[in-house]
């Protein structure tokens, strides 16, 4: 899922300072799962904003809505009937959701209430970790199911580098060396000899961010 976290409330308060009627929109997708932008977070943030405004003696009207997803026009359009009644849309979906709001409601500013951080999963309750950078050409079959792009701080395809020590990365002693993990896993799979000695050729990064904004078109699904 896309993992995000709440922006500091001070930053949000500053962003909405000039408004007194806003629409706060959450998302029941990824950001609800990582407890940053679901229904509950909408309720909490709305209450916190109103509380802050009351201490300043300035009321603010907040309409609270949580959509199924903010990355699908079908759901984004569900607020069409009343979006125009508000001065701004504060979205607590990922950056995709905020942009979809901005694209669909051109006359109203769309503001981000979250910092979208990465694609990852939950390690335990309350702990999330990055796993994929969407490089557009997956190599997990070569690396024991551990992503070298994400887990190696330098995204090396033929690691480890000289900075790997005792299983940790030189970038941060708290961070596991991605290549140490890969090697251990390849050994466990009995693939170490065959895979590790093989040089992985230079990766074509044009499927990644180097190729500019990406788009997928599925002709079989198009209408």
């Amino acid at each position: 899922m896309i993992v995000a976290q709440a922006k500091p409330i001070e930053e949000i308060l500053e962003m909405i300072d000039k408004y007194d009627k806003i629409l706060l929109v959450g998302c029941k997708g990824c950001v609800a799962v990582c407890a940053a932008g679901g229904e509950k977070e909408v309720q909490f943030l709305a209450s916190a904003i109103r509380t802050a405004r009351k201490t300043q003696g300035r009321e603010i009207e907040i309409r609270e809505v949580t959509l199924e997803r903010q990355c699908d026009p079908e759901y984004v359009e569900q607020i069409r009937g009343f979006a125009g009644d508000y001065q701004a849309i504060l979205s607590i979906a990922c950056g995709v959701g905020v942009q979809f709001m901005a694209e669909h409601y051109r006359e109203i500013p769309a503001l981000p209430g979250l910092n979208t951080s990465f694609m990852g999963g939950a390690l335990e309750q309350g702990v999330w970790s990055e796993r994929c950078q969407g490089c557009g050409n997956c190599v997990l079959h070569l690396t024991g199911g551990i992503c070298p792009i994400t887990r190696c701080s330098k995204s090396l395809l033929n690691g480890p580098c000289g900075g790997s020590s005792n299983g940790k990365c030189e970038v941060d002693p708290e961070v596991d060396c991605g290549w140490q993990l890969i090697i251990e896993r390849l050994k466990a799979l009995g693939e170490f000899e065959s895979r590790f000695m093989e040089i992985v050729p230079i990766k074509d990064w044009s499927t990644s961010r180097d190729g500019g904004p990406r788009k997928i078109v599925r002709e079989d699904m198009r209408q």
Partner: peptide, 13 residues
């Protein structure tokens, strides 16, 4: 008791 209950209590004054 959820965080929402706590903040709402303060919002309500």
């Amino acid at each position: 008791v959820d965080s929402v209950h706590l903040i709402k209590a303060f919002e309500e004054g």
